[in-house]
Each structure stands twice: as C-alpha cells, then as structure tokens.
Simulated assay, not measured.
Amino acid sequence: MISHSHQSIWKITLVCYYNTFIKLLPYWNRTGEMAKSLLASSLSVRTKILQTGVSLYNTTHGFHEEEVKKILEQFPGGSIDLQKKQNGIGILTLNNSNKMNAFSGAMMLQLLERVIELENWTEGKGLIVHGAKNTFCSGSDLNAVKALSTPENGVALSMFMQNTLTRFMRLPLISVALVQGWAMGGGAELTTACDFRLMTEESVIRFVHKEMGIVPSWGGASRLVEIIGSRQALKVLSGTFKLDSKEALRIGLADEVLQPSDEATALEQAQEWLEQFVSGPAQVIRGLKKSVCSGRELYLEEALQNERDVLETLWGGPANLEAIAKKGKHTK
C-alpha cells in the first residue's frame, strides 16, 4: 500500500511534469518545424548545386573567382581545344606539348570556358578528353606553382579547379579520358573527373602529390575513393605508384586498354568505344547521366525525385513514342 503522503507527493510530481510538458510543447513544435525547414533548405541547395551552370563556390565560401582569374591570366601558354562533332561526341584536347601538356594559368581559365560551352551544348551526348602529341597531362606548370606559393593562393587555386572539375563531372555527357603517355599530378586528377578511363599499353597514371609535399586538391582524392575504394586509394596516393595500364585495369581505375599507341588511331578507337554508350537520342543519354549524377551525390529521396523529374521530360516524348511504335523485343 502507498501511503497518503506518498500519493500526494506522486500527484504533485505528475502535475509538475505535466505543466513543464505543456510549457515546452510549443518550443518543441517550433524546433521540429525549424529542423524540417533547415533540412528542406539543405536538400534544396544540394539539388540546385547539381544543376548545370551553377558554381560550386562563391564569396560566402571565401572564393573570389574574378580575383583568381586575374592571377591565372599572368601565366600564359598552351590551349584547351574543343571540337564538337555532329554525332554528339566532343573532343577536348589539352595542348601544351612543349611542357607535356601541363596546365598553365591560361589553360585553367580556358578549361572553365570549355566546360561552360559544353554545359550549353544541348545536342551533346559524349566527350573524349586527351592530350596532344601522345601525352595526357603532366599536371600544373611549375612556373605558376612556384609563383603561387602562399597557402592563400594554393587554396584559391584549389577552389577554382574543384569548381571547374565538379562542373565538368556533372555535365550531362558521358565522358572518357583517353590516357596516352603520362597522366601525373593534376593530370591524374583530371582523369578521375571523367566517367571512364581508357589507356594505351605504354601509358601511366601517377598521383605524385606526396612527393611534392602536398595532397590532391582538385577533388582527385575524393573521386579516386569513389572509383577504386578507400583502401586502394590510400595505397595509390601514399605509395605514389606508377600505375601502368595493366595495374590500372586490375584495380578498376582503367576500363579498357587500347592496343594502338599512336594518337590518331587511339582517338579513333576511343570514339568507337564511347559510341556503344551514347547511341540513341541525346535527351535520353543526357537524362541517364543526370540520373547517375544525382544517385551519386544526393540523398535517396532527392535522387528519386530527380529521376521523376527527368522521366517527366521523356515519357511520351518522341524517343519514347518511337520505341513503343516499333514494339521491339529486348531479349535478343
């Protein structure tokens, strides 16, 4: 039996708990609504970032793009050439052969310009990235690296190239890096921004950053983890391994090894390899790439919504109706 005094104390305690709950209820409701609002805002921002033509960084991140551009303009040399073919495949060429196609400041600026051009190429379906004269890219021009030796300049350059290569990666084009000769440092990072990597027998990919006393800073480490896994990526980065075509194929960094090593024949074979993935209407290929990008970068609910949004632009469209009219069997 519980005594009357204990019953009184218990009732008083319950009343106190109840009164406290009533007072806190509006606060909890507001907090819940605030949390939902913040989550919705976060999801909206993430989804918006995936849209083409949107920069990854701005002044709120401490990134002043125009100031960085003025610095990069001081280091001329080389070019980034773009050829857009009628079959919807683009050819992006790194052209600074006197320096093994190393990125000058001007080339970094041009790369962003070419990415913006590709963002607006609505007929595009695929893209091949390669270097002139049988060399992919040896990284950054050391003249620019030496001149930009302060941590502030290093971070500014990092943000500029992270922004450029992230926008490149999000292009609604299926991209292939054709690696001939060496792909080192920043050149190795560039290969990871492509959807696929083809190598010739003599080519080598090497992340030499550790030997330069730095780490990959153009997004290459993060993308490498996604491609080959964290354990393998740590080995590759910390061991500064020279990944020849066989080893790159073994660990999953390369997708195929092409037999010819001369520039023209390898480029022709790379186009033939890519055509198997970009055959069909441009809007469908671009929609598939967008869906894969959202699945990689967004939360599940956002990615599912993005799939529905892409489907809405295709369902009942010309390609869909034509396919239905043909009544083709897909088991052959």
Rank of each mutant, 00 (worst) to 15 (best):
L39M: 01
G78K: 00
K69G: 00
C16N: 08
K23R: 14
H4T: 00
N101Y: 05
V45H: 11
I116T: 11
V68L: 06
I128W: 01
L39D: 11
G124K: 01
S55W: 08
N98M: 05
G124F: 06
A35E: 09
L82D: 15
G126C: 01
T13D: 03
P76N: 15
I2E: 09
N98L: 13
F63D: 01
G77N: 06
G105Y: 03
I9T: 05
K125M: 08
G124W: 01
L43M: 12
V129A: 01
K125H: 05
L43N: 12
S42Y: 07
H64D: 04
K69N: 06
R30N: 15
T52E: 07
G32V: 04
K23V: 09
W28M: 08
S37E: 11
S3W: 04
N29T: 10
M34S: 13
L109N: 01
A106S: 10
Q86A: 14
I22T: 06
L127Q: 02
F103R: 04
I128F: 04
P26V: 07
G124H: 08
G124D: 07
N87D: 11
T122E: 14
T13F: 13
P76V: 04
K23P: 03
S44T: 03
K48Q: 13
L24R: 04
K85R: 11
V68M: 14
V15P: 06
R46N: 13
T47D: 14
L82Y: 08
E117H: 04
A35L: 09
F21R: 05
C16Y: 07
R114H: 06
E123D: 12
N95P: 06
N120W: 00
A102M: 11
R30E: 12
I71T: 06
I128T: 00
F75Y: 14
M34G: 02
G126F: 06
E73A: 06
E33T: 03
I91P: 00
I89C: 15
T20R: 12
N87L: 12
A102T: 00
V15E: 03
L56V: 13
Q83W: 12
T59R: 11
N101F: 04
N19G: 01
C16T: 04
V15F: 13
L25N: 04
G88C: 10
L82K: 13
N120K: 13
S104V: 03
E65H: 13
N29V: 11
G105W: 03
E117N: 08
S79R: 14
N19I: 15
